[in-house]
Nucleic acid binder design. Structure first.
Ligand code: MN
Ligand code: MN
Ligand code: ZN
Ligand code: ZN
Lengths: 150, 150
DNA sequence: TAGCTAATTAACAATCATTGTTATAATATA
DNA sequence: TATATTATAACAATGATTGTTAATTAGCTA
């Protein structure tokens, strides 16, 4: 994601209005590395500006994606995650216990991409997404098989 | 997935009943490489034995997964795919145009796994899933940006 | 082969994430 | 400040999946 001021510029240039709701959403996303859900973003925005609707949050997030300012990722946890990290190519670690998502930098290039291409037949590769499942450091500490205990 | 007769054995051994619905579902899944959705399996079963409920299909599929006889995969197309290929470790190609899912054999081992492990910090890796997005051979033929034209 | 019982099914309602609709409100600009 | 345009909120709707439960069936046994 660009900086908030850049986003404001982008919104102005594309004839979109700068509303308190949008600014608050930009703010929550800004350098956020938590891969929050729409609901989580909604809660944070609400605590900042009092009132938003979940619909507005979804709308703005979809808009930001179509402007290539965020990435909507689905790692199979049932809800989409919103990721402002679009400038740096990266992949994801997903905790099988607490569902937290963390970035991992992997160079999918050279040898790997070659190997992928060789096996893919007639398929024209656009992008490669790697999801690594396992246990995060927090869940490793506690017994590994427990469900998220508060 | 095991062969159908093996599945029947597994079901007998675990005190489950061999019903026409279940047999038909086994049959649809048997050496199926299409990664069908529950709905698609439901339609095929219905054409075979006349009546099933979608709920029964979902139930049986979840059961087969917990018996490790199929794999439920979510490649972000909004609906789960059911994959009987569990004996052979593999990954997936997903067409961005028609959403078809195809298997791809990739050796995620040696160099790659080492690289993954080095970047993953304290994270304990259980499994690595690779999703390769792009265009399948069929969609490459037609103009690439069209939606599935019948 | 008929009867018994536990397991299964089908019908239906419910859930959850996400999107559609629309009347009201707020922003940008002249 | 008035006006045009865009955005918001409230609410309903959707689609995939799961929950509930009464009726049915498979598999065993007499
Ligand atoms: Mn990320
Ligand atoms: Mn597969
Ligand atoms: Zn965890
Ligand atoms: Zn295709």
């Amino acid at each position: 994601m660009n900086s908030i001021s850049n986003l404001v510029d982008i919104y102005r240039l594309t004839n979109r209005k700068i509303t308190p709701q949008r600014l608050a959403i930009f703010n929550v996303l800004d350098s956020n590395t938590d891969h929050p859900t729409a609901e989580e973003i909604y809660e944070q925005v609400k605590s900042q500006i009092g009132n938003v609707s979940l619909k507005t949050v979804y709308q703005t997030l979809n808009e930001l994606e179509s402007l290539n300012q965020i990435q909507i990722i689905d790692v199979g946890t049932g809800t989409s995650r919103y990721d402002p990290n679009v400038n740096q190519s990266h992949h994801h670690l997903v905790c099988q216990n607490c569902s937290k998502v963390k970035d991992i930098e992997l160079d999918i290039s050279g040898e790997m991409l070659k190997a992928f291409g060789q096996n893919s037949g007639e398929f024209k590769i656009d992008r490669v997404e790697v999801v690594i499942r396992g246990l995060c450091e927090v869940c490793l500490g506690k017994g590994s098989s427990k469900q998220s205990e508060l």
